[in-house]
Computed example of a mutant assay.
Amino acid sequence: MSKQVNSEKLPVLHTVAEVRAWRQTQRKENKSVGYVATMGALHAGHLSLVDAAAAQCDSVIVSIFVNPAQFAPHEDLDQYPRTLPEDVNKLAAACLPSCTCVVFAPSVTEMYPRGITTDRTQQRGTFVEVLGLSEMLEGGTRPHFFRGVATVVAKLFHIIMPDDAFFGQKDVQQCCVLRAMVQDLYFPLVLHVIPTVRDPEDGLALSSRNVYLSPEQRSRAPTFYRGLCRARDLFDSGVVSREKLISVVKEEAAKGGLDIEYISLSSPEDLSELETVGSSGAVLSGAWRMGTTRLIDNILVGFKF
């Protein structure tokens, strides 16, 4: 038996026409609109974005859409968790009574009327690319990813027309890519980056993919964050050398037996690799695998979004 969506407390919109009609109502009532983009499987990290939006805006709209364009044919699109009823009920429980909250849960056809395949060479229609930033870091191993992210977020911005949009720092490169897109395409909105929400016991960044970890993998996964914290402590003590900051992350990751893909010390502006941390600060980030599960994390040193 399927679980019921709490639609009385939290309307669920499925079409572009429904969202535009809702947005027109907010405009007539002179209400500001905050937007949170998700792919569902909501956890406390997502809800922190909703809280931030509700604290600043009169109304909040949360999109729940597993976007095929940001997956490659060999990635986990079919396995990605789809938990719409549970997600809507979490949002209904979390949304402040003083703030109007709705969900936009479109179909793939609604978002990609020409159709969509994960094979980029076979894709047809209109796509958005943020060149330069998209090729750095995550783009090295997932060259399709940020094209898919930029495309779907541009569509959602056009559909929803929010005043403010809220994204999590855990996906720091995504934040940089979208910030550039907002500037380059003159989207009339403010993009906010909200600090990563972590497990209070061991600091592991909350992620929808954490559910794939075995208990043994889950116990080792936080060693990367411990390395990031050691590096931040070094920076705070005056160390700005790439080699020294990255070496302590590697040391901690080795203790956990993590299969590291990369560790980066990069510029907040263009994500180019840095040899030393200058006055503009840096992003210290990385990706690693635990079995078949790929995780990412980062900290900011010397700057804030």
Rank of each mutant, 00 (worst) to 15 (best):
Q123H: 10
R82S: 14
A41L: 01
Q217D: 15
C99Q: 14
A41H: 12
L204S: 03
L131G: 07
P268W: 00
S285W: 02
L274G: 06
A231H: 06
F303R: 13
G168E: 04
P195W: 07
L271I: 02
T126W: 03
A44R: 15
Q174K: 04
I299L: 13
M290S: 13
S134D: 00
L258I: 09
S285Q: 12
A93Q: 15
H46S: 07
I260D: 11
A21P: 01
Q174Y: 07
A37S: 07
G34S: 11
T25Q: 15
Q70M: 13
I299F: 08
G256E: 06
V149M: 03
L206P: 05
Q173C: 01
P81H: 05
R147F: 09
S247M: 11
V239F: 01
C176G: 02
G125K: 04
A69K: 01
E243N: 11
S48M: 03
E252Q: 14
T141N: 11
V153W: 01
L234P: 06
V5N: 09
S32Q: 12
G45W: 07
Q26V: 03
S247R: 07
F303H: 15
Y35F: 15
C175G: 14
L284T: 05
A54R: 03
A154L: 03
F127T: 10
L206G: 04
F187Q: 01
K250Q: 15
G34Q: 12
D184C: 04
E275W: 02
W288Y: 15
R20I: 03
F71R: 14
V211Y: 11
R82F: 05
H144L: 02
A282L: 08
D164A: 02
K170C: 11
D259M: 10
C57W: 00
K244M: 13
V50T: 07
S107R: 06
D233P: 01
H14F: 14
A69I: 01
I299P: 06
L189W: 00
L258N: 11
L258W: 08
V283K: 06
K255W: 09
A287D: 10
I64E: 11
F127K: 00
I160E: 00
M136L: 10
P97F: 03
F104H: 04
Q173P: 08
S214A: 02
V277R: 01
Q24M: 12
F157W: 01
T126S: 15
S219Y: 08
P85T: 09
F145G: 00
S2H: 14
Y186Q: 09
T276S: 14
Y186W: 12
V283H: 12
V193F: 04
R232Y: 03
P143A: 06
L178W: 01
F146L: 01
V66G: 07
A105S: 15
R209L: 11
L77H: 05
V153S: 00
L284E: 10
A52F: 01
V60N: 04
L284R: 05
S207W: 00
N89T: 08
S208M: 03
T141H: 11
R198H: 05
E269G: 07
Q4M: 12
R23W: 02
Q70E: 14
V301T: 12
R230M: 10
E129F: 09
P106M: 03
V60Q: 02
P222D: 00
L91Y: 08
D119A: 14
V182E: 02
E29V: 00
V190T: 14
R179E: 05
Q174H: 08
V239Y: 00
I194L: 05
